[in-house]
Amino acid sequence: MLIEHGPVPRRTQSPQNQASEHLRFIRDVMERSASFTAVPGWGMVVVGLTALSAAWIASIQDSPDASLMVWFIEASIAVMIAVLTLYWKARKSGVSLTSGPGRKYILTLAPSLVAGLLFTVALWQAGNTELLATLWLLLYGAGTITGGASSVRVIPALGVCFMMMGIVSLFVAPVWMNVLLALSFGGLHIGFGLYIARKYGG
């Protein structure tokens, strides 16, 4: 055993396998470490700003359908910004978005987003759009909590805040929904995004 005091326990005998194990260990730690910071803070800030704009535009629309369309466009833009900034941050950290941390975050958040989209279409077709904001807040919160389970503690905390806003939205009149969405998708994203960007490098 040549690398007997190294970071990898004695499992394999050949020097080649030993060296491979060392490199795998480094890569594994780097991937898991990057998962702590894979969420892009500045991306969240930009998403928050677009959400604030969307909330204002939605609030001056004449019909619920028009407001819904504004939020649908905002969601599409937000997803694009999130994916792009996730990619940039992963690249900056020296890991691939399709490897460990980025993939884990996207795969755990995506089911909630897809469920939200499907329920939105179903509720819109049924003419019941009053509960949409609650649905979005709760599903996005749940997705953020699971997506951030292996990340820094601030990410699940963000998810909890969204879920709490979702609960609050159950007791708020529909006319205040745009304000609530502005506070959550806008305010929470900007606040938490700035904190992440300052503390975890971008």
Binding site: H5, P7, F25, I26, V29, S33, F36, S93, Y200
Partner: peptide, 27 residues
């Protein structure tokens, strides 16, 4: 060339700044 030290250096190479607690959980 020691497991914990290599882990610390590798983690910081990817994670920029990590707290003591984050490193403890990670490793």
């Amino acid at each position: 060339h020691a497991r914990v030290r290599l882990g610390i250096v590798s983690a910081l190479a990817a994670g920029e700044t990590l707290s003591f607690r984050d490193l403890k959980v990670l490793l």
